[in-house]
């Protein structure tokens, strides 16, 4: 499936982190980017001025309480919060393909029920692979994550990620 055919559903993490980096444009290239109302509220609590309307292919979705409720048991097992649960419920209900999330438990649950999952780091690198940004720009955004965003990464781990990219791409 090519990127342009993928329906992605946003969780708050990548939305907030990409906005912190001034890089919401990296969400471009999906057929649709579905944004559950619960996730938007959560993101606006952290980033009141967030430029959500600038996201290409954005479709706002009202969470369906019965769809959310049907997943309570599984969500409890994975320890999910309201926003993450709403995002996965929207993914199922709207036949989405990919969850965009940085939450480990939400990612684990979405993968367990058969969906693709990408996080902020994956979206930055996707932007480079799609030639939206240069390798240098992608590299700079990754290096800026600990200082300019609230996505917490161990410095040693980030160095490892950058090394992997260099090894593979020279």
């Amino acid at each position: 499936m090519s990127a342009g055919e993928i329906i992605a559903v946003l969780d708050a993490g990548p939305l907030i982190h990409l906005d912190e980096l001034g890089s919401l444009n990296l969400l471009a290239g999906y057929r649709e980017v579905l944004l559950p109302d619960v996730v938007e509220s959560e993101a606006r609590k952290h980033r009141p001025e967030i430029q959500i309307d600038s996201i290409s292919g954005l479709v706002r979705v009202t969470s369906n309480p019965s769809a959310v409720e049907s997943m309570f048991e599984l969500a409890a097992e994975f320890g999910l919060h309201a926003g993450e649960l709403a995002a996965i419920a929207v993914l199922k209900e709207h036949h989405g393909d990919c969850l965009l999330s940085d939450d480990a438990a939400a990612r684990a649950m979405a993968e367990a029920i058969g969906f693709q999952v990408r996080g902020t780091v994956g979206l930055i690198l996707r932007g480079w692979q799609r030639k939206q940004i240069s390798k240098t720009a992608a590299y700079d955004l990754l290096k800026a994550l600990p200082k300019r965003s609230t996505l917490h990464l161990r410095p040693g781990f980030l160095a490892n990620v950058l090394e992997q990219i260099n090894e593979k791409t020279g």
């Binding site: 480990a104 999952v117 996080g119 994956g122 692979q129 799609r130 992997q164």
Partner: peptide, 18 residues
Amino acid sequence: LQEKQIMADVQWALNECR
């Protein structure tokens, strides 16, 4: 787990994403 998932994103981006 978080780091394993991020590394999976990196591998995906480097090997599969176009």
